[in-house]
């Protein structure tokens, strides 16, 4: 059968970006980002098991401004994905699927992710004695 002339469903870019669609694609992007971030976690564990220079190296890298930026991004990605993941689990139970609820839970997820990220970093700087 000739498939070339079949009608295609509208491409995503013809839709106006909405909170719901933006948060949806962000769940996927943070999932992929977290997957890349696991490399850092494995590196850190291996360095801790080797001790000595291996650990000093990763600590210097993570401690640099660039390392902290990456780690900050990873923490936000984690908290966003975690909170939105819980939103997904409620949907899986059939709860909160109507439009007003989806918007409300969306805003809650954004707020919770920001609060958790900032709290985590305040806690981290506090342990370092910087606060």
């Amino acid at each position: 059968m000739d498939t070339r002339e079949r009608p295609l469903s509208p491409h995503l870019q013809v839709y106006k970006p909405q909170l719901t669609s933006t948060l949806s694609i962000m769940h996927r992007m943070t999932g992929v980002a977290l997957a890349v971030g696991t490399l850092l976690l494995v590196w850190w564990l291996v360095a801790a098991s080797l001790g000595g220079e291996a650990f000093t190296t990763i600590q210097t890298i993570i401690g640099s401004w660039f390392g902290r930026l990456i780690l900050f991004g990873w923490t936000f990605a984690l908290f966003y994905h975690l909170c939105n993941g819980i939103r997904h689990l409620f949907w899986d139970m059939g709860k909160g699927l109507d439009l007003p609820s989806a918007y409300r839970s969306g805003w809650i997820v954004i707020a919770a992710a920001i609060v958790l990220t900032v709290s985590g970093w305040v806690c981290g700087y506090h342990s370092m004695g910087a606060l």
Binding site: A48, G51, G52, F55, T56, G63, T75, L78, G120, W121, C123, G124, Y125, S127, M128, G129
Partner: peptide, 13 residues
């Protein structure tokens, strides 16, 4: 994990 790593910030090996 995050709570514990935040507590370990700056800790030695």
């Amino acid at each position: 994990l995050v709570i514990n790593i935040a507590h370990l910030a700056g800790a030695d090996v």
